[in-house]
Design a protein around this nucleic acid. Structure first.
Lengths: 202, 202
DNA sequence: GAAAAACTTGCGCCGACTGAAAACTTTCGC
DNA sequence: GCGAAAGTTTTCAGTCGGCGCAAGTTTTTC
């Protein structure tokens, strides 16, 4: 959490976050990221257009900046947990431990989800980020299970966990009052433990 | 399989396939799709650049044209099987029924896999296509399981199946001599039936 | 066999993105 | 503190992918 940084690095992180936020705000305002140009985002964040592109490859990347942050946190936490817990528990608890529900408020998340859902390019870029996360995490899972990253098993476990995570989050965002996020994640992961072919009764 | 079409539609399908093939050939030739321009692809397929863009949004789309074809076939088959089989079996058998190993030869598939693996944009676009496939199939799964497409269960089942499919295919392409594709798929899907937390012994 | 519908093409355009060099800011050694 | 060094931002010019449009061509329809 507490990474020692100089002023310079903190400033960079700040502008990056500012750009991400600007992208999000403008996109919601205009009802879609397509309607927003990199120039507008840069202006909103108070930097030049070129600087925007120094930080992000595309406006989609900017909007999904949060995703990277969360992914980074997940990886760090997972790496730690994998040393002491069975991998499946580590994956589940790391998902819970992100506490997405505390990081962002529900309305914002819903909004974000809608933005992504309605933009083909955003869907695609986000999907790509999941793959990145997958490839980054597969080594951890492989090592924890004593298998090779190229084997079937670690890829299946990690794939399942990422699906579980995504589906649980989506579901909770749609029905935040129904149950706390941690519980939804727990139940979703539990579904994989007993076999996917029969549903666990809600 | 045998769709009744006029001359016009067959020609369209032909040029689309030709463009896809051209993209693939040029990409392998030049060691990466980045090194290939839409103009080259169009030229290779004997049409104008503008026509290329009438068929595909991007060169990545062109290269992944096969994916769409396979996805279409999968959906059609799944829709049919879901009427008579339990959904999990339908998903597995539809995956097997594609007979990827008969449609393309192994060397080509390996080549294609490498192209995708080495190109961030290709990875991303392909990931997006999986999401498309997901959203197209989730209704089928939901109906088959008597649930709502927004529920947890159908999304988990379908997500698992797609992961299984992808992982099994990847694995088989890397080790085609080890076991026939159908068997790899069967074993991979079986992993989900007994619960993901303990590996099935190979 | 002519009119209608569908497809291809060339042209012009816009917007996203990049490279290079100049201006500026932070850092570091003394 | 101060000045050189390293890193960052900006301006500017340019490339490239992709799209709308309208004219030309092919297929379909009756």
């Amino acid at each position: 959490m507490a990474e020692q940084t100089g002023l310079r690095e903190r400033k960079k992180a700040a502008t990056k976050a500012a750009l991400g936020l600007a992208a999000f705000r403008l996109a919601t305002e205009k009802g879609g990221l397509e309607a927003v140009s990199p120039d507008e985002i840069a202006a909103e964040a108070g930097v030049s257009t070129r600087t925007f592109h120094n930080y992000f490859h595309s406006k989609e990347d900017a909007l999904l900046h949060d995703f990277n942050e969360v992914a980074r946190a997940l990886l760090a936490d997972l790496r730690e947990r994998a040393r002491h817990q069975p991998i499946w528990d580590a994956l589940r608890d790391a998902s819970i431990g992100l506490h997405i529900d505390r990081r962002f408020d529900v309305a914002t998340m819903k909004c974000r989800e809608d933005l992504v859902k309605n933009s083909p390019t955003l869907i695609t870029v986000q999907a790509g980020k999941f793959i990145e996360l997958f490839t980054a995490a597969v080594d951890i899972v492989a090592e924890a299970t004593g298998t090779d990253p190229a084997d079937l098993y670690p890829r299946l476990v990690l794939g399942s966990a990422l699906v579980a995570m995504k589906v649980a989050n989506e579901h909770w965002i749609e029905h935040p009052q129904h149950a706390p996020l941690a519980e939804v994640i727990t139940r979703t992961f539990a579904q994989f433990e007993t076999g996917i072919t029969r549903p666990i009764t809600e």
